[in-house]
Structures are given as structure tokens and as C-alpha cells.
Design a binder for these strands. Structure first.
Lengths: 224, 224
DNA sequence: CGTACTCTTGAACAATATCAAATAAAGTGG
DNA sequence: CCACTTTATTTGATATTGTTCAAGAGTACG
């Protein structure tokens, strides 16, 4: 299996460096100590953990603008793997801590990012606790549609495998495949190939996923 | 249904006031705006949300020392209900925000608390995604054992109903009951009554819950 | 005591996992 | 560019787990 080296373009005067990873490369591994912080510039990253009994739980598919597995513990609770070519802005742990102490504006941003990550995790827990397979996949299709731009052919690309989706949704890859093809049969999505789709009936999926239109209002967040 | 009024013991010079709630009273409701922050002094609180389709998801059973549903959004994403008589230290939203801006020490504490809440939520998501009913209940029994002190009779009290446990673990109350009684049959727990138990074989439950002994090391957290 | 809960237990049912095979797509080396 | 190999996806048949429905047993409370 080939090994990849990240390309470092260090700017002597800047705390953050640009890093580039090819598809399938790891940004870091579960258990890494004193790792720094990545903010994605381009590409998609899977953030996952492997449990004691060998199950893989994908916590997030992160994209441009997202911090990867942002948390305060210095030992990484997760691994992060590039799904495609990925560029990140990387800050060493040391520089990150220094900035947190010194810059109020940065501190506020990180504060809110961690709060958002927390809200996402709670949302995911609710999804896993309360919703059936069809509803989970519906929710995920809506996520794909809203987070990935359509390509030239008009179809939204599906960059992760059925297994990746399954490990994120707490299902098996067969069940994910069945639900997607059921949506296809029912004309809810157009999926000419397994790796691309286009939404035909958003309303139907939103109803399944339990997203009401009125539940879309914004919440004020604290000024800090 | 009776309504309860919280007892306010305001100290004019202090930002925080002591509040007392009887069992079954709500500290606040999902959707409340500009609500303040509670830190539990004594008693147990269930933090839950109700989804659009009416499912109740219990996010946490919080006890002394815990902040109740600490997050930065001012509209409460959850409701909080007292399981027993509960005392809290309450700070208004306004005072909370002021303290956050002014006191570095307090800010750090809150920062870490939110980070911890985030880690808990991710842990819960992993539990729901990867573990079967028996393993989830095993994990919960260990939680009960470690968070609630035994009473005079030597048994650890179970303060929540089977339904509460079910809504926390993503199961039905019947399944929870079956698993608990299976543990009882197998001599893993001693449960003379439905509302108290004592652990007989911790090792067995730890193995089920996927808790290795070596996974117990502490992680360094950032100084901030 | 009797009424109302909550908990337990059983049986039938439904959803999803598991196992296995067939198909499709994507690399690989000539 | 084409056969060949490998990997991912789809689909079907069966097994398992947990839910649902229903009834009975404790327990609490007036």
C-alpha cells in the first residue's frame, strides 16, 4: 500500500501552513498526541473513530471552511482521512493555544465552532436513536444535496462509498443501497450511476427526515 | 396537573441565585428564549428534546456539578425536568455573558464544559450507531453505578423509569426491562426491586460495553 | 382495600442484518 | 484500446434483533 507525504508550504512569518493530501491519505490518526488543527480549504474529509470491538463510526464528512475534529483534548479522539485531494490550513497545537490565549476574536470563533460541533453530535445521536433506515438515508441525501455542488453534468457527486454512509448512519451498506435504490424507483432521486444523483422530490425527503419548513429559523448566538 | 414555582433566594450582591425545584418540575422548556444557566447543586435532571414526529430523546441525566444543557445558543434546544428535588445555582443569561467576557478563568471552565458535552454527545452517537440492546443497557448500568451513590440498604437507586432509560438508549421500555432482568437472571446484578440494584459482575458489563481497562488513561487538555 | 401506575413477560410481527450471488464499474498490464 | 483482475454495488433469500401488542404482576397511594 502506497504511503503519502503531505506537502508543506511553510511561510516563515505565518503560524499556519498550507498542507495538501491526496485522496485516501490520513491527516492524522486516532490517538495522535499534540496534533495541530486543520481547517479545510478544499476537498472532503471523513472523521471517524474505531471502537474497541472494531466498528468504525464516521462522525462527520467535513468540507471547505470546516475545522477537522476540533476539540480541546490534545490526544486525537478520531482519525481523519481525505476522500479526495484535500488542502488545509494547518496550525500547530502550540500556535493554536497561543492564539486562543491572545486573540479574543479567534477565541470566540473557536468557541462557537466547538459549540456547533456539539450541536451536530447531539443531532446525530437523535437521528440514530429515533429514526428508521429510510429516514436516516433521506436525511443524508439532503445533506449531500446541500453540501456538495453539482458537477458539469448537473448531478451532485457522491464521493463516499455505500460503506462510508452506512458507518455514518449506523446501518449496513446493503440497507443504504436498498434505500437509495428505493428512492430511485420511487422517482425521488435521479441516480444514473452509483456515484451521482440529482434531487427530484425534496419535499418528500424533508418530510421523511422530519425537517419542517418552519423549523428553519435562525437562533441567536451569544456575543461572547 | 399541579404547577410548581421555583424558590428564588436572590442574593443582591451575587450574580447567581439558588433555585429549588420539586420532582417533576421543569427547569426550562425546549424553545425558551434568553434562558439563563443552571449548575446543579443536588438532585438529578433529565435533559431531553422532542422531535417533530413526537419522539422524546433524553440527551443526559445530569447530576451535582453538571451544567444543564450548556450551549451558546440562547434558544434552548432542550427541556430539563427534575427527577427528584433539585437545587441549582442559576445565572441569568445576561450575567452569564458578562462573566464570559470578563473572567478568563470562568471562560476557560465553560469552554471545557462545552467541549466535554460535545465529547459526551459523540460518545452517545457511537453507542447508538454501533452497539446492540444488551450492550447499551450494560453501558447504562455502569453509568448508574458510577454516578449514583448506594443508599443505606447498600443498593444503588434507579431514579428514572424504564421509559426514561429507553428514550436515552434508543430502545423501547420493554427491551430495557428484558435486558435488565436478563442481567439479573445471569447474576450480573442483584435487583430485589425495579428501582434499585447492586453490581455483582462489573467485569462482565465492562466487556459488553466495550470498556477496556487500559482505555482508562487520562487525556491532557489544553491550558487555554 | 381498591385504583392507578409501572414493570415484567409472552407471542406475533416488522425491520434490518447477514450471507450469498450476480452485476457493474474501475483499475492494470499488455 | 482491450482482456483481465479487482473492487464496489445491487439484489435476493434467510436469520436475527428488537418492536409492537397484549396480558398479568408488583408497587404506590389515596
Amino acid at each position: 500500500m502506497a504511503r503519502f507525504a503531505a506537502v508543506h508550504e511553510a511561510h516563515a512569518t505565518l503560524a499556519s501552513t498550507r498542507q495538501v493530501y491526496p485522496a485516501r491519505a490520513h491527516l492524522f490518526h486516532q490517538g495522535d498526541i499534540e496534533r495541530g488543527i486543520h481547517k479545510i480549504v478544499s476537498g472532503t474529509v471523513t472523521v471517524y473513530r474505531v471502537t474497541a470491538d472494531g466498528h468504525r463510526q464516521i462522525e462527520a464528512f467535513s468540507g471547505p471552511g470546516d475545522y477537522v475534529s476540533l476539540c480541546l483534548c490534545t490526544t486525537s479522539p478520531t482519525s481523519a482521512e481525505a476522500l479526495s485531494r484535500v488542502e488545509t490550513n494547518y496550525v500547530s497545537r502550540e500556535a493554536f493555544e497561543r492564539r486562543l490565549l491572545q486573540e479574543a476574536q479567534f477565541r470566540q470563533t473557536v468557541f462557537h465552532e466547538i459549540d456547533k460541533a456539539s450541536a451536530d453530535a447531539r443531532r446525530q445521536a437523535t437521528l440514530l436513536a429515533c429514526r428508521c433506515a429510510k429516514e436516516r438515508v433521506a436525511d443524508f441525501v439532503l445533506f449531500l444535496d446541500s453540501h456538495f455542488a453539482p458537477e458539469a453534468d448537473g448531478y451532485t457527486p457522491i464521493r463516499m462509498s455505500r460503506c462510508d454512509m452506512a458507518d455514518h448512519l449506523g446501518l449496513t451498506l446493503e440497507t443504504v443501497s436498498r434505500m437509495l435504490n428505493q428512492f430511485k424507483q420511487d422517482g425521488v432521486i435521479d441516480m444514473p450511476r452509483a456515484d451521482r444523483f440529482s434531487l427530484k422530490n425534496r419535499q418528500y425527503l424533508k418530510r421523511l427526515a422530519g425537517q419542517n419548513d418552519e423549523a428553519d429559523r435562525r437562533h441567536r448566538r451569544m456575543a461572547l
